[in-house]
Computed example of a mutant assay.
Amino acid sequence: MSLSCNALGWSVKEKTIVSDATLKVRTGEMLGLVGPNGSGKSSLLRMLAGIQKPSSGRVCLGETPMSNMRQRDIARKLALVEQHANTEDRITVREAVELGRTPFLTALRTWRSEDDAIVASALAAVDLKGFEDRLWHTLSGGERQRVQIARALAQAPDILLLDEPTNHLDIGHQLAILHLVRGLPVTSVIALHDLNQALLCDRICVMEAGRIVALGAPSEILTEARLRDTFGVCGHFMTDPFDGTAIIRFHSARTG
């Protein structure tokens, strides 16, 4: 399923957070969303997820305007993993992940064995098997992040939005999560700070001051000029001798 927005904007007390964002994420692609802190990445993701109502423009799931859809129907198609998720409730890891099945439960469609299997599969996918009975408040930041990703996977979405999903994770789990998302049969948008991780995406969308300023293949978008002008660093592309993939070596623009 594709995801698109047209002339999307959001302002708070006359301060523009996102302006005139137009974008179409193709069915099955993995789009990396990058930009400096405060560039509007999280706000754009929240509007794409239907959580934040835009001040202007619209979002479509496939060809259907999101504004015409019920929240439950949106949640059956799309899942969002935000940067920070906290709760004061004393819930277990399993209970947190089971929340991902909520959009599918009704008075007529109660919990089934297939829901148990989906939850178990989601936990295993993020390396949390054996954590089922751990309480949320006892988890580290990285473990909580993985629980939130498992909750999103339990929704079995067609579209997966992730806001810095590798934040708080050790390098092993960072790579595992990125490769997991890349292998899923979903359309995904991932906000990332690590530009070398963004190179794994099919396309990259660059934001500056609330606007989309570049969109395309990583090799076309992450040029030395873009790295300098947008991120304030000098970067040179190199070839990884291990597998031949492109990597970026950074140093301060002031010393470049």
Rank of each mutant, 00 (worst) to 15 (best):
G38W: 04
S43K: 11
S43G: 12
L44F: 13
R46M: 12
M47F: 01
M47H: 01
M47W: 01
L48G: 02
A49F: 10
P54W: 05
P54Y: 05
S55L: 08
S56L: 10
G57N: 07
G57L: 09
V59D: 02
V59W: 08
C60L: 13
E63P: 00
E63A: 11
T64F: 00
T64G: 00
P65Y: 04
P65R: 03
M66F: 08
S67N: 05
S67T: 12
M69E: 04
M69I: 08
Q71I: 10
R72V: 13
D73L: 09
D73Y: 06
D73T: 07
D73R: 12
D73V: 03
I74D: 12
I74K: 10
R76D: 00
K77Y: 01
L78F: 02
A79P: 01
L80F: 11
V81A: 09
V81K: 07
V81S: 11
V81G: 05
E82A: 15
E82N: 10
E82R: 11
Q83T: 14
Q83I: 06
Q83D: 06
H84Y: 08
H84G: 01
A85E: 07
A85P: 00
N86F: 04
E88P: 00
E88A: 13
D89S: 09
D89N: 04
I91F: 08
T92S: 15
V93S: 05
R94C: 02
R94E: 14
E95A: 14
A96L: 14
A96S: 15
V97F: 01
E98H: 07
E98Q: 15
L99F: 09
R101I: 13
R101K: 13
R101M: 12
T102V: 11
T102A: 14
T102D: 07
F104P: 03
F104R: 12
R109G: 06
T110N: 10
R112E: 15
S113D: 14
E114P: 00
E114G: 00
D116G: 01
D116Q: 04
A117T: 09
I118S: 03
A120D: 14
A120S: 14
A122Y: 03
A122M: 02
A122D: 02
A124R: 14
A124M: 12
G130Q: 10
G130K: 13
G130I: 12
E132C: 05
E132W: 03
D133Y: 03
R134M: 10
R134I: 02
L135G: 09
W136I: 06
H137Q: 10
T138M: 08
T138A: 12
L139C: 02
S140T: 11
S140F: 07
R146F: 10
R146C: 10
V147E: 05
V147A: 01
V147M: 05
A150N: 04
A150R: 05
R151I: 12
R151S: 13
A152G: 14
L153K: 07
Q155E: 09
Q155V: 09
A156Q: 15
A156C: 13
D158H: 06
L160W: 10
L160C: 10
L161P: 06
L162N: 12
E164M: 03
E164V: 05
T166L: 09
